[in-house]
Amino acid sequence: MAFTEDPYLATSAYSLGRLHSVETMGTVDGPGIRFVAFTQGCPMRCAYCHNPDTWDVNAGEPVSVEYLVEQFESNRSFYKTGGVTVSGGEPLLQPEFLADFFQAMHEQPRGRVHTCLDSCGYAFDPSHPERFDALLRETDLVLLDIKHSDPEGHRRLTGRSFERILAFGDELARRGIKVIIRHVVVPGITDTVEECEELGRLIGPWRNVVGLELLPYHTMGVAKYEQLGLAYRLADVPPMDKERIPELRRAVLRGMKRARG
Rank of each mutant, 00 (worst) to 15 (best):
F72M: 03
F72S: 01
F72K: 01
F72G: 03
S74Q: 13
N75L: 14
R76V: 12
R76S: 15
F78Y: 15
Y79G: 06
Y79N: 10
K80G: 01
T81S: 14
G82T: 05
G82C: 05
G83C: 05
G83F: 07
V84I: 15
V84A: 11
T85H: 09
V86E: 05
V86K: 02
V86W: 08
S87Q: 12
S87K: 12
S87W: 11
S87D: 09
S87N: 14
G88W: 11
G89F: 04
E90S: 08
P91Y: 07
L92A: 05
L92T: 02
L92Y: 02
L93Y: 03
L93D: 02
L93E: 04
P95C: 09
P95D: 11
E96G: 01
E96V: 14
F97K: 06
L98I: 11
L98E: 04
A99T: 11
A99V: 10
A99F: 12
Q103L: 09
A104H: 13
H106W: 05
H106E: 04
Q108K: 09
Q108W: 02
Q108T: 10
P109I: 10
P109Q: 13
P109C: 08
G111E: 10
G111R: 06
G111L: 10
T115P: 06
T115W: 08
T115Q: 12
C116V: 00
C116F: 00
L117Q: 04
S119V: 02
G121E: 12
A123K: 14
A123W: 13
A123F: 13
F124W: 13
F124C: 10
D125W: 08
D125I: 09
P126M: 09
S127N: 13
H128M: 13
H128G: 07
F132A: 04
F132P: 03
L135F: 04
L135R: 00
L135I: 03
L135V: 04
L136K: 11
R137D: 15
R137M: 11
E138A: 15
E138C: 10
T139M: 09
T139L: 06
T139A: 03
